[in-house]
Simulated scan of single mutants.
Amino acid sequence: MKTSIFKKIILGIAIIYLPVQTMAWGTNGHRISGQIADSYLNAKARAAIKAILGTESLAITSNWADFIKSDPQYNYLYNWHFINMEREYSYPEMQEFLKKDTLTDAYTKINFLVGELKKKNLAKNNKLLALRMLIHIVEDIHQPMHTGHLSDKGGNDVKLKWFDKDT
Rank of each mutant, 00 (worst) to 15 (best):
G29R: 03
G155T: 08
R31E: 04
S39Y: 08
H136Q: 08
K99R: 14
G54W: 15
M85A: 13
N79E: 10
Y74P: 00
D164Y: 05
D101C: 14
T108A: 09
A24Q: 15
N84T: 14
L18M: 08
N111Y: 12
L98T: 06
D101K: 08
I5D: 08
V114N: 07
L77M: 15
L129V: 07
T147M: 08
M85L: 14
H146L: 07
M85W: 12
S33K: 01
L129R: 04
I13V: 13
R46Y: 06
K7V: 03
A65C: 09
I16E: 04
R31H: 02
K127A: 05
Q143H: 15
K2W: 15
F67M: 14
W162K: 04
E139W: 04
A48R: 00
N156A: 11
H149G: 10
F67N: 10
Y107K: 07
A24S: 15
A24V: 12
T102G: 12
I32P: 00
K161W: 04
H146R: 09
F163S: 10
R46V: 06
N84H: 15
Y89D: 12
E56W: 07
K159D: 06
A47K: 11
F112M: 05
R31N: 02
I15T: 06
H146S: 11
A51D: 14
T61P: 00
T104H: 06
G54D: 15
T147E: 03
A43R: 08
A123P: 02
K2A: 15
D38T: 07
A45F: 05
T55N: 15
N156P: 01
S151A: 12
N111L: 12
A45M: 11
K44L: 03
T61G: 02
I36Y: 12
K2R: 15
T3W: 09
Y107T: 08
